[in-house]
Nucleic acid binder design. Structure first.
Length: 556
RNA sequence: GCUUCCAUAGUGAAAUGGAUAUCAUAACGGUCUUCGGAACCGUCGUUGGGGGUUCGAAUCCCUCUGGAAGCACCA
């Protein structure tokens, strides 16, 4: 039992008598000790005395019970109780910090994220769900879950039909097989943009596209469709590799649409009903709005497919405990309707679904849209970041292929960091120049510190280790000891930004320490405490970066 | 019009109802003939307006103002 758990259990004992809830926190300011509790505010209410005098009474008992680990307990402010650990307790816990945390105990968790659409560009908007989904997956794994990563891709529907119509009608001719994957995908993008434009100008076009859509849904053989889909998927795969995501299963709309449609039809009229030729769910009965699940053409819409998707995930990962889905917040309202409808069919399944929504990635000019052609692909963005990095890597210690990979990893870190530092759900104004500025809080700053620290530790292998007593680094030790609490909070709130903020703090604290303390002396001596501390910090940084999906390079 | 979400230094963000609201950047001033300057230290500056609940509010409630998304067959 560590000091935090011990203090907590003593307080729980106190609170239990009164049946009260309280918190035990790690204060932001170091002037408030190692831990602080608000228990006096809670208990004072019941006793009808002031929080301050209540705290004064409590610390007498606390001091006796915690004498072995606590240096000092004091009442501060309006009635906070602050605990100051004995130095050797804090140091010992930090140097022996166990970074593993088992909360979920092997529970099966599904995480669906990224969800790009074949035939469309993998634009920078897809970076957001990818970065968040990958981080969430790793966060859950880090607290003991068995995570299955799933990517759901819309290979059927109007956007595909529009692209196919565009290919046929824009008059470019079908590309040869030997052009690059990028050019092939760009061709599909132009076809989609052309088709979308023509729909606006000509009503007949829409009817033709609807026809194509129907034929795809009916599963009619279509060579262009097959080739285009393969191009898209091959292209997506190259991007996942660069971003560091690997999916266990891919689910396609084409395979779940009939599952969804059947499920809807089977539940008419209990759950769904016919209205104006379509089959809808009347969400008004639960405070939502009506959504179409099967349109009057008899085709399942997004909503019905989403039901099919949910069923399919159950098949792939039977007996799962939590099913997470990461999507843009623009579908929040639809998703509520889908979830409510699903709840009427299968309450248990619906309850296990956890929707994490993220904001839009916006360019300063306005909303990005593949319809207008004002799009930046993920690839373009990463390439641009890499280009700007190249100067800085001129004096890098590695060369060739490894260097190429490193520059990619740093570029991805820069982008991922700028996404993950923002609480999911809020829009991200994506200013390219700012995102690739490596001054201050950034992915590359963390990576650089990690690389420097790794090299420092390597260098210590050739140094003489001395065991002299030096002053303990309280700030660093407290941060290290805080890791598990941060991880737990990051998991409970599905909030990667807590880990980002924490790693930034730890990195800065290390750099401050590094700046004021010479670790390896000029006559090649290292203090054992300093070396041990460096090793622990390295491990925490490595684990934290891994959780965020950011590569931790041992040299740069 | 209705529903949901949002508003924090010049800029971008963080903050379980807790203490003096943090962090970065910009600006300004320093450290250093580097244990790898993509470093460190210092100065400056913030909770949209008005009510309420609470020992305590950026956080909860009401209201106003401003913004975003959605509101039937796209996803």
């Amino acid at each position: 039992m560590n000091s935090f758990e011990k203090i907590k259990s003593v307080l729980e004992n106190l609170a239990e008598r009164a049946g009260a809830d309280f918190s035990l926190d790690i204060p932001e300011s170091s002037e408030h000790g190692d831990y602080a509790t608000n228990i006096a505010f809670i208990l004072s209410k019941q006793k009808g005395i002031s929080p301050k005098s209540c705290a004064d009474n409590l610390i007498v008992e606390l001091q006796t019970k915690l004498a072995d680990i606590v240096e000092k307990i004091e009442v501060a402010g309006a009635g906070f109780i602050n605990f100051y650990l004995k130095d050797e307790i804090r140091t010992n816990e930090a140097l022996n910090k166990d970074l593993s945390l088992n909360i979920l105990n092997g529970k099966k968790v599904i995480c669906e994220y990224t969800d790009p659409n074949p035939f469309k560009l993998f634009h920078i908007g897809h970076l957001v769900p990818n970065a968040i989904g990958e981080a969430i997956s790793r966060i859950y794994e880090s607290v003991g879950a068995d995570v299955t990563r799933i990517c759901y891709q819309g290979d059927a529907g109007m956007h595909v039909a529009t692209t196919l119509w565009g290919i046929k009608n824009m008059g470019e001719g079908f590309p040869k097989e030997n052009i690059s994957l990028n050019e092939k995908v760009a061709f599909l993008g132009r076809a989609y943009a052309y088709g979308t434009k023509q729909i606006e100008d000509n009503a007949d076009v829409k009817n033709e596209i609807i026809k194509i859509n129907k034929s795809i849904f009916a599963g009619e053989k279509n060579d262009i469709y097959d080739i285009g889909k393969k191009w898209s998927l091959d292209y997506f795969e190259t991007i996942y590799q660069r971003l560091g995501s690997k999916f266990d299963y891919y689910i396609f709309e084409s395979e779940v649409s009939s599952i969804g449609k059947e499920l809807v039809l089977k539940n008419v009229p209990e759950v769904f009903e016919e209205s104006e030729g379509a089959i809808v769910y009347k969400g008004e009965k639960v405070g939502l709005h009506t959504r179409v699940f099967i349109n009057k053409e008899g085709l399942p819409t997004y909503e019905a497919k989403e039901l099919g998707n949910a069923i399919q995930k159950e098949k792939l990962v039977p007996n799962n405990d939590i099913s997470i889905i990461v999507t843009a917040n623009e579908i929040n309202e639809y998703f509520k309707v889908v979830k409510s409808a699903l709840g009427e069919i299968d309450k248990n399944l619906s309850n296990r679904i956890k929707h994490i929504s993220h904001g839009m990635l916006r360019l300063p000019e306005g909303k990005m849209s593949s319809r207008t052609g004002n799009v930046i692909s993920t690839e373009e963005l990463i390439e641009e970041v890499k280009e700007k990095l190249k100067d800085k890597f001129e004096k890098a210690r590695i060369e060739g292929k490894e260097k190429e990979q490193l520059i990619n990893d740093v570029a991805v870190a820069a982008v991922k960091f700028s996404i993950l530092k923002i609480a999911p759900g809020k829009d991200i104004i994506f200013d390219i120049d700012k995102s690739i500025s490596f001054e201050g809080d950034s992915g590359p700053y963390l990576q650089y510190t990690y690389a420097r620290l790794t090299q420092l530790i390597l260098k210590c292998e050739n140094a003489k280790i001395v065991n002299e007593k030096v002053e303990s680094e309280k700030e660093l030790e407290k941060l290290i000891n805080n890791f598990s609490n941060i991880l737990e909070r990051t998991y409970k709130e599905n909030a990667p930004q807590h880990m980002v903020v924490y790693l930034t703090q730890l990195t800065r604290a290390f750099n401050t320490f590094y700046g004021k303390e010479r670790i390896i002396s000029e006559d090649n001596m290292v203090n054992k405490y300093h070396l041990d501390l460096c090793n622990v910090i390295k491990n925490v940084l490595q684990k934290g970066l891994y959780i965020l999906g950011i590569v931790a390079p041992s040299e740069m």
